[in-house]
C-alpha cells in the first residue's frame, strides 16, 4: 500500500482507497492524506509500512498527529526506531486501543524519511498517549543514542474521511 500527503488544492495523483482531509490546528496547513493500492509514483509518494487499526471498528477519530522524522534517517537509527515501534511503543498504543483509533507508519525510500500518523478521538487523548510513550522505559538493548526522536509533530483536525 502507498500513501500521499498533499495540499488540499493539489490534484489526486492516483485513485485512493481512503482519504482523510486534515486541517492543521496550530498552523495554516490543509492537507489530504490518501491511501492507494497502486503506486502513485512521484516524489511525494510514501510506502505504508504498517497500518494498525487499534480502536473499535467504526470509531470516530477527530484528530491526527503527523510525526515526522525528516531524514535522511541513518540505517541504524531507522532499525532502532522500527524496533521501538514494534516492541515498545506499539504494545503501549495497543493498550490504549479504546482512545487511539489507528496508526500508520510511512516510509520514503529516496529521502530516507519516516512519518507516523496517529488518529485519536480527541486532543487530550493524543497528548496523554505521547506522555505515555515518553515515559516508557527503554527495553534491554535499546540505546538512547539511536533514538533521537522526531524532528516535528503537527496536530490536525480530521475534517473529512472518505473510504
Amino acid at each position: 500500500m502507498y500513501a500521499t500527503i498533499l495540499p488540499t488544492d493539489a490534484a489526486p495523483p492516483a485513485a485512493a482507497t481512503e482519504e482523510f482531509t486534515l486541517r492543521q490546528i496550530a498552523g495554516p496547513r490543509d492537507v489530504v492524506l490518501r491511501l492507494h493500492d497502486g503506486d502513485p509514483t512521484g516524489t511525494d509518494r510514501w510506502i505504508v509500512e504498517t497500518d494498525s487499526p487499534l480502536g473499535p471498528p467504526g470509531a470516530k477519530t477527530a484528530v491526527a498527529a503527523v510525526v515526522t522524522f525528516s531524514g535522511p534517517m541513518p540505517p541504524a537509527v531507522r532499525e532502532a526506531a522500527d524496533r521501538a515501534d514494534h516492541d515498545r511503543i506499539g504494545p503501549a498504543m495497543a493498550a490504549r486501543a479504546t482512545s487511539t483509533g489507528r496508526v500508520l507508519r510511512l516510509w520514503q525510500e529516496d529521502q530516507q524519511r519516516k512519518v507516523v500518523v496517529v488518529f485519536a478521538v480527541d486532543q487530550p487523548t493524543l497528548h496523554d498517549g505521547f506522555r505515555t510513550i515518553e515515559a516508557l522505559e527503554l527495553l534491554p538493548g535499546e540505546d538512547p543514542a539511536l533514538l533521537p526522536g522526531p524532528d516535528h509533530v503537527e496536530i490536525f483536525e480530521v475534517t473529512a474521511v472518505t473510504s
Binding site: P74, P75, A76, E79, A80, G141, D143, A145, L146
Partner: peptide, 12 residues
C-alpha cells in the same frame, strides 16, 4: 560505518 549500532552495544 555499518557497525555503528553494534559498536554502541559493545561500548555499553
Amino acid at each position: 560505518p555499518d557497525g555503528v549500532a553494534e559498536r554502541l552495544d559493545i561500548a555499553r
